[in-house]
Design a protein around this nucleic acid. Structure first.
Lengths: 215, 215
DNA sequence: TTTCACCGACCGTCTGTCGGTCGGTATTAT
DNA sequence: ATAATACCGACCGACAGACGGTCGGTGAAA
């Protein structure tokens, strides 16, 4: 049957379907036919809205991009939140993505979606780092931190969390995870030249993020 | 024409061809036909030696694995080399891979080979980190370094260098690269609790690695 | 005569293309 | 105001081309 919609509405339908399918079966594992069936459109329609399958992925990433960085920016700019808490929240917003759709990132970390994962990681490293750095500079001004290389510091922190914590890159049981987080907090304090123990609050929130989402 | 060879010889021919082709055109961009033509064998022969295209990639990665970690282990175990120099050499061995085939890793860092890259990165992080950690412990015993978390420290260092320096993950011009290395050395010193400036030698060797290979 | 490396025709599935169709909307004539 | 017309954006589905993987069969060496 023939159903006509506005281009943007249709585009989003396709993206929503692709989002779910890529999450379940990976990019390579999802055929364009899978998407067609899910949206109930014909082949030509898909290629009317997107020029290729990879184009769909790029559009999806663009959506993630906007959401993730948008959320991070809002949090980072809210100077009413204490600096350290703001840092924690920005870090968390990278994984949970802020809103009701908290299963966005969960799918990404699978061996199947390597390319998508790589592209998102690139966006996070190059997008989140400057946002975090701004907070760090604030902290330096207030005497909380002390480093001549705030940007590179945060780049290291962001790159590390994104490879080791977000992935199946390093396999850990809960115990190893806990010690990894302890060490991470300690190391971050050293990198930032923060007083020992001043970031320990981070650990708790990290821990709860893993166990289960409470709001 | 029909040419018969020992299975292992043929396997290596196929791997060599795949290595070069994947490097040039990426994994997805290389068809099995490309490999067949290059090796001058028939379809069935390829699938006699490998059960799938991905199997070829995994065998390739296994080769890298052996070479990279093998080289790293040899260097790390040579206690005649001063600790800091050993660290530098291990880091370098990750990129140059030791021997005459120094173009192995160059191809990997392309958006096309995302899956292969991810798998190799996993091997490096989980394989090189313990090797490096051993050296660090030696350094701690000698009073050069001081950290309660040597493993997690090195994990951070290895993960960072592999994402930021080895990739097109972060685009940098030479100037940015230089400052990135300066900061990296500084940060690593902090992480390891090393005396400021004690690792500066690293910077020089890193610099030469980029410019051109001498020996 | 058994075994091992090899062959190449063939299959199903995939992505992407292309000529053509349909329905709503703006425009014009009545 | 209403009807005829022209237009265009959204949609369709048959099709082409290429790909990864299979299988029954072949030839040479052991």
């Amino acid at each position: 049957m023939r159903v006509v919609k506005e281009a943007e509405a249709r585009r989003n339908e396709i993206l929503d379907a692709a989002d779910e399918l890529f999450g379940q079966k990976g990019f390579d594992g999802t055929s364009t036919n899978d998407i067609l069936e899910k949206v109930s459109i014909a082949r030509g329609t898909l290629y009317y809205h997107f020029k290729s399958k990879e184009d769909i992925m790029n559009a999806l990433i663009e959506r993630y991009n906007t959401r993730i960085l948008g959320t991070a920016k809002v949090i980072a700019a809210d100077k009413s939140i204490p600096i350290i808490e703001r840092i924690v929240r920005v870090v968390l917003s990278m994984n949970v993505s802020g809103g009701s759709e908290n299963q966005i990132m969960e799918h990404i970390h699978k061996p199947q979606n390597a390319l998508m994962h790589q592209k998102i990681q690139k966006i996070i490293i190059n997008g989140v780092t400057p946002i975090m750095t701004e907070i760090i500079r604030e902290g330096i001004a207030k005497g909380l931190f002390s480093t001549p290389f705030p940007y590179e510091c945060m780049e290291m922190v962001v790159a590390y969390t994104n490879t080791v914590f977000d992935d199946d890159m390093v396999e850990m049981n809960n115990e190893e995870r806990t010690s990894r987080i302890q060490a991470f907090v300690f190391n971050t304090e050293r990198l930032l030249g923060a007083e020992s123990g001043s970031l320990t609050d981070i650990m708790q929130m990290f821990g709860s993020e893993n166990g289960g989402n409470n709001e």
